[in-house]
């Protein structure tokens, strides 16, 4: 019987259980027991996780029917599943998803390219950086999302969404990349300069390659931000897309529409994130470095 302290110590050290009169071949048996207990633990954790989700779904289905919560506000898993399959079959779900997805991709790609260019300019001329620095800080402190209505007025319903996604990504990219450029190992830059490299060469041969991990980190952040920007833009302006479904659905109290859209949004979001993780591992493996040019 383990005392609570020993249970706590299993946090950072694993030890064999006491075996008083066990024979000399006991190590293998005890180790086998240990491995079995590990497997059991992993299994029980997974069961708990599945169980929690199942319990949530059950409560969600039962509670509105029992009158505990208002079904207008929450809908039921069964209704949501039905709406999901219906929309999938008649193609409307695919349309909306693609709209949002394309806007997001254009947004973060555009934002990253523009942001990288601006970061390079700021790195190139420290003079320009020092002049523009306070403006950038101020512009960064403004919640860009507050500009959604004004973008809508200026650019109309479609372009404003792209603009919002790009606008949000640009600032984050500039800040992250500029910091990343500055963090590239000084000694590496010195090395290349001693070989007579021009500023352009320093940029292309040391700073940019050395900032690949930072760029991937910025990409991760941008995808999330662009998706958010697009969805909020769609709240305001759109006639298609997942954000539109959410707003429209909640306005006509069709929560199954809202929930379907949210579920799809969560799935896309996770897929994009996983995709970038995969990209990260491939790139970093080839690249061989972790963090600003080590």
């Amino acid at each position: 019987m383990m005392t609570s302290t020993k249970a706590a110590l299993s946090h950072f050290v694993r030890f064999a259980p006491r075996s008083g009169s066990a024979p000399a071949s006991a190590p293998s048996a005890a180790y086998a027991a240990y491995l079995r207990s590990l497997k059991r633990r992993a299994l029980s954790i997974q069961l708990w996780q599945i169980g929690l989700v199942a319990a949530l779904l059950v409560v969600w289905e039962v509670a509105p029917r029992a009158g505990w919560i208002n079904p207008m506000l929450t809908s039921y898993p069964s209704a949501i599943a039905r709406t999901f399959t219906r929309m999938l079959q008649d193609g409307s779900l695919t349309t909306h998803t693609l709209v949002t997805l394309s806007e997001t991709v254009v947004g973060f790609v555009g934002g990253m390219l523009l942001g990288t260019f601006c970061a390079v300019v700021l790195w190139w001329s420290s003079y320009v950086y020092r002049v523009l620095d306070p403006f950038i800080v101020v512009l960064n402190a403004i919640p860009k999302i507050a500009l959604v209505p004004i973008f809508y007025i200026w650019l109309g319903d479609i372009a404003s969404i792209y603009a919002m996604a790009i606008a949000i990504s640009v600032f984050v990219t500039i800040l992250m990349l500029y910091t990343g450029f500055q963090a590239v190992d000084e000694d590496k830059i010195k090395l290349v300069r001693l070989f007579g490299a021009s500023r352009l060469k320093v940029l292309t041969k040391v700073v940019l390659p050395g900032s690949v991990p930072t760029m991937i980190a910025a990409l991760k952040v941008n995808v999330g931000l662009a998706l958010v920007g697009v969805v909020v833009g769609e709240f305001q302006a759109a006639k298609a897309g997942l954000g539109y479904l959410i707003t429209y659905g909640s306005q006509i109290f069709q929560m199954n529409l809202v929930m379907t859209a949210i579920v799809v949004l969560a799935v896309i979001s996770s897929l994009l994130f996983i995709g970038i993780q995969a990209l990260e591992s491939t790139v970093l493996r080839r690249h061989g470095g972790v963090g600003g040019g080590n």
């Binding site: 999302i145 999330g224 998706l227 958010v228 969805v231 909020v232 709240f235 997942l242 954000g243 959410i246 707003t247 659905g249 909640s250 929560m255 809202v258 859209a261 949210i262 949004l265 969560a266 979001s269 996770s270 994130f273």
Partner: peptide
């Protein structure tokens, strides 16, 4: 990973 702002209407 869920964009939480999407939950705003809800």
């Amino acid at each position: 990973s869920i964009p939480k702002l999407a939950l705003a209407p809800l």
